[in-house]
């Protein structure tokens, strides 16, 4: 069964047609990278999956629930689908540890003891155990993003969405964040959808690459096929413009 399924999805911002007839299936445990020129609708697409953007037509099934159905409880989907943002969006009024513990406490009602143990284990995993008591303002960009990843993982999601997770980082911070993401991708039960410009990451980690332009999916192929033998002229042009050695 697929974890995420778009069927003829259309999305408009007023008159602007942001997503055009999107059909896409992502299976459980798959790691899919979404690339394309800026303004192509990648971020919009990924943000529809947890309801941060509404769709106007078609249906969008996440973990079996239709997001376009008004009866669907969006909070139930968000419980199972984590999101990592370009600008981290850590809670500025909470310590790193509290950032990780808040949602499991409020939403999952996880016991305080278990919550803290899980949170500390996750912070350790992303290399931030010594920053548990620090406020987000005291962290570097790379540390913030790793804390945000730990926050998402604490909910034990079935799928994780990454919206340009390294685009706002200084170059020397990118590696650490990608390492953490690589680690997560190894977990075969985790579904990952990543919007990124990091071609080396896509090559190393993705099972599939989706190429978008002007709100359409132009190419949906295996990673090898996409990088070695892209079919669409737009994709060929895009790849020649970005460094993907």
């Amino acid at each position: 069964m697929s974890m995420i399924e778009f069927n003829n999805v259309e999305k408009y911002y007023g008159k602007f047609h942001a997503l055009k007839n999107i059909n896409l299936k992502i299976d459980k445990g798959e790691t899919v990278v979404l690339i394309g020129p800026s303004g192509s609708g990648k971020s919009t697409l990924i943000r529809t999956i947890n309801g941060l953007e509404e769709i106007q037509e078609g249906n969008l099934l996440v973990n079996g629930f239709d997001l376009h159905d008004p009866k669907t409880d969006i909070n139930r989907i968000r419980k199972n689908v984590g999101m990592v943002f370009q600008h981290f969006n850590l809670y500025n009024n909470k310590s790193t540890l509290e950032n990780v513990m808040l949602a499991p406490r409020l939403v999952l009602k996880r016991s305080e003891e278990e919550n803290k143990a899980t949170a500390m284990a996750l912070l350790d995993k992303v290399g931030l155990a010594d920053k548990a008591a620090n406020m987000p303002s005291e962290l570097s960009g790379g540390q913030k993003q790793r804390a945000a990843i730990a926050r998402s993982l604490a909910m034990k999601p079935k799928a994780l969405l990454f919206d340009e997770p390294t685009s706002a980082l200084d170059p020397e911070m990118v590696g650490d964040v990608l390492d953490v993401m690589r680690d997560i991708a190894k977990d075969s039960s985790m579904t990952m959808l990543v919007v990124t410009h990091e071609m080396s990451f896509a090559k190393a980690v993705a099972d599939r690459v989706i190429f978008m332009a002007d709100g359409e999916i132009l190419e949906d192929s295996t990673t090898e096929e996409f990088f070695n033998n892209p079919k669409e002229p737009r994709a060929q042009q895009f790849l020649s413009q970005v460094d993907h050695k």
Partner: peptide, 9 residues
């Protein structure tokens, strides 16, 4: 957005 995506109402 961070809070809503994290599952908070």
């Amino acid at each position: 957005e961070g809070a809503r995506a994290n599952g908070l109402s």
